[in-house]
Design a protein around this nucleic acid. Structure first.
Length: 423
RNA sequence: GGAGGGUUGGCAGAGUGGUUUAAUGCAACGGUCUUGAAAACCGUCGUGCUUUUAAAGGUACCGAGGGUUCGAAUCCCUCACCCUCCUCCA
């Protein structure tokens, strides 16, 4: 959520920024917010004055009761208060309407892109900032063929038990996935991330605080009986640990890593492009979350990117790094790097990590703050990145490391798998 | 699922309708004293919104939301969460 203070003081810049993001009616929306804000404050001001009068009169009655006075004086004061109360009630109602309406309109606005984010409207406009040179190859099988050949994952069984997009991992397939999870968690620990095992169901408030609601309503699985949502990413549960907190600056940056299953309905994005492990309703992911001081959040973003690149390199997979353009940026992000690994059998790049700085967008909703030198509460910056998402890593690994005699397990994983090859 | 008890500032904890402006203690911060520290003593010490150049005010907040009342932390209703016992359970 964009800081209202920023909209007040820097209206033009906010509007310009939202235009670039592809909001043609940005000006009208910001104007509406400013108007509402002014009305809200005027209402609040009047309400405060009336409440002060009421409090004063009530106190007087209290004092008068202790000294014996004629009831007519008391009745007169009571009547004066009763007249006030009508107006106060109306103002309270009005103030409530203003607040909820203002919040609703603020919730609907995406974050403002960082000034260095490339201009552009579509995924084609994303900036490729690194790409592993590829050797030409042919005859590589796609992972869905390899999975069948070596009996690693059963999609049909998943269909039977649950439905499409819920695969069953078996034997070496299951073990390879577990090895990857452990490898990622151990690496994260070494890099200073404290491990978290969070709940995978969250309440509505949590989903609002990290920005999944109201923007992505319908993309999460919802359990109406308990009014809870299945998390689409561990980011939601882990970041919400810090909802409504003031963090000591000495504790910054806070770094967490968490492994959870993730659940996504993927409504509307289920198409021809989706086969095998490329897009699932349930998948595993190790997520990295950081809470940083605004002054150094971008330095930490770069470090997080370098860390995730290191993971892919250790798995000996070709990859590329994209800096997302303004139009392709996620709703909450101010800047995002995507890491895509190469899937040799499909001749395709698959996104396995999205590394973003949300600046104060989430912390504003979370009310996650620190105290500056003047003891003033200021919003912190939140960052997160996948480190990494499992199925597409698995897909790329199978396709890229396939040999005539089987699939070679990257060296770093062998202590975790206990085998060198899948044959 | 059943019965009972609870939720007050960073923490502990008083407060059952009106000088409560939420006591007190601990912790924290500043100071005096000290070579330095501890102890002792003095002072400061919640959050949001808002008025103001500032100093200083106003207002709201005692789990959440409603209600009663001139006035609610206090009384009533609804909900959430926590604890104890019973029941069930990995």
């Amino acid at each position: 959520m964009i800081d209202l203070q920023r909209i007040r003081t820097d209206k033009k810049a906010v509007v310009d920024s939202l235009h670039k993001r592809g909001l043609p009616d940005a000006e009208a929306r910001i104007e509406a917010i400013c108007k509402l804000d002014r009305e809200k404050r005027a209402t609040q001001s009047e309400l405060n004055t009336l409440a002060a009068t009421l409090n004063k009169l009530s106190n007087q009655i209290g004092h008068l009761l202790r000294s014996e006075v004629e009831t007519t004086i008391l009745e007169a004061k009571k009547k004066a208060i009763n007249d006030l109360k009508e107006r106060i009630k109306a103002l309270k109602q009005q103030s409530k309407t203003h607040t909820s309406s203002l919040l609703e309109q603020l919730y609907a606005l995406p974050n403002l892109p960082h000034q260095s984010v490339p201009i552009g409207k579509h995924a084609d406009d994303n900036l490729i900032i690194y790409e592993t040179p590829l050797n030409p190859s042919s005859g590589q099988l796609a992972h869905w063929d390899l999975i069948k050949k070596y009996d690693l994952i059963d999609f049909e069984l998943g269909n039977k038990i649950t439905g499409a997009g819920f695969p069953v991992y078996k034997g070496k397939g299951a073990k390879l996935q577990r090895a990857l999870v452990n490898f990622f968690l151990d690496q994260a620990e070494k890099a200073g991330y404290t491990e978290i095992q969070p709940p995978i169901l969250v309440n509505q408030q949590s989903a609002y605080a990290t920005g999944q609601l109201p923007d992505k309503e319908g993309q999460m699985y919802h359990i109406p009986l308990a009014n809870l949502y299945l998390i689409p990413t561990a980011e939601v549960s882990i970041t919400n640990i810090y909802r409504d907190t003031i963090v000591a600056t000495t504790a910054l940056p806070i770094k967490h890593a968490g492994y959870t299953p993730c659940f996504r309905r993927e409504a509307g994005s289920w198409g021809a492009d989706v086969r095998g492990l490329n897009r699932l309703h349930q998948f595993d992911k190790v997520e990295l979350v950081q809470i940083c001081h605004p002054d150094d959040s971008y330095a930490h973003l770069e470090r997080m990117l370098a860390y995730v690149q290191g993971l892919v390199e250790q798995l000996a997979l070709p990859y590329r790094v994209l800096k997302l353009c303004q139009g392709d940026l996620g709703f909450c992000a101010a800047m995002t790097y995507d890491i895509e690994v190469y899937a040799a059998g499909q001749n395709k790049w698959l996104e396995v990590s999205s590394i973003s700085n949300f600046e104060t967008f989430q912390s504003n909703r979370l009310s996650l703050r620190y105290k500056d030198q003047n003891k003033k509460s200021c919003l912190l910056h939140t960052l997160n990145g996948s480190g990494l998402a499992l199925p597409r890593i698995l897909a790329s690994l199978l396709e890229y490391h396939q040999r005539p005699d089987g699939i070679a397990i990257p060296k770093v994983l062998r202590p975790y798998t206990g085998f060198h090859i899948i044959d």
